[in-house]
Design a protein around this nucleic acid. Structure first.
Length: 284
DNA sequence: ATAGGCGCCTGCTGGC
DNA sequence: TGCCAGCAGGCGCCTA
């Protein structure tokens, strides 16, 4: 579900609620398997530990503990990580409950579809090794223009697939890929290697702009996304193409199209974002 | 080696 | 009204 702006919002919401707090106890609230299995031994390693840092890397949420270990959460499609009052009813599909030392407060991990995970890493080296093994790429705001251009130049994949490839740039998913391609006026099916230098740069800037604005609006709430304190996002009100098939393009009035590409629905303006063959003609 | 497709899950929507 | 296919903010594994 959540992409970078949603994860960033959750981290910003959770930070003041969790920093300096201790985890009193951890318990599983379901026996169901997550994408990465929860190790029963981790509860003992977490009990009594203080949360010293709450941060994000790509779509991963990282809690640094005073033991030097890291609790790392991925929300998959439907994950939620929220602080709640202990007497709030525990919603169905809640998998982990972390009691905080602040009386009556809990951190809860809920995930309907269970594509998400929560894992403990013993130290910084283990955490970095895990990210490296996943090939986690640079943050979009720190994306080197030349590295980005080369990543595109070296592949025949559709530019949309490159944008969503977490090893090239971390944090972009389906919504923000579509919105960024619209801002950059690039058709999602354009081959990476067919993009000009100017187009690659336009896209790099568009991604940063779209993500920044989405963070300002606390991300996008389509279905079940909520921030760390349960508040919804507002960027869905600013979608230009995502989920707007058949509606007029906000730039030129042509009807927004929707097509399956690299296994995902892609939304774009057929006029502002010329298809690969016509894009070639337009370049000449 | 690369790129596309499928499976993992549950729940909701829209069309019949 | 009811049912069922299709689809959903992600990602890892398999195969061609």
């Amino acid at each position: 579900m959540p992409e970078l702006p949603e994860v960033e919002t959750i981290v910003r919401d959770l930070r003041p609620l969790l920093l300096g707090r201790r985890i009193a106890a951890v318990r599983r609230a379901s026996e169901q398997r997550l994408r990465r299995p929860w190790d029963e031994g981790w509860a003992a390693l977490l009990a009594g530990r203080r949360i010293d840092e709450v941060r994000r890397r790509g779509k991963w949420i990282v809690l640094a503990l005073d033991s030097g270990a890291f609790l790392v959460v991925h929300l998959g499609m439907t994950g939620q990580l929220t602080v709640a009052a202990a007497d709030d009813p525990v919603a169905p599909h809640t998998h982990l409950v972390f009691d905080l030392d602040e009386p009556g407060r809990q951190l809860r991990f809920r995930d309907v579809r269970r594509f998400g995970s929560a894992s403990l890493f013993a130290g910084a080296a283990e955490l970095e090794a895990f990210f490296a093994a996943n090939g986690l790429g640079p943050e979009p705001f720190a994306l080197d223009p030349r590295a980005w251009r080369e990543a595109l130049a070296n592949t025949t994949r559709p530019v949309k697939a490159v944008l969503m490839d977490q090893t090239v740039v971390a944090g972009v998913g389906n919504i923000y890929a579509d919105e960024s391609l619209f801002v950059a006026r690039l058709h999602p099916a354009r081959r990476g290697c067919d993009l000009s230098r100017a187009e690659a740069e336009r896209l790099r800037k568009a991604v940063a702009r779209v993500l920044s604005r989405a963070i300002e609006r606390r991300g996008s709430t389509i279905r079940d996304y909520v921030g760390g304190s349960g508040l919804a996002g507002g960027y869905q009100e600013e979608f230009q193409v995502y989920g707007r098939a058949g509606e007029p393009c906000p730039r030129c009035g042509a009807l927004i199209a929707s097509r399956r590409l690299a296994g995902r629905a892609s939304h774009f303006c057929p006029a502002c974002q010329p298809a690969p063959s016509t894009a070639l003609a337009a370049e000449n």
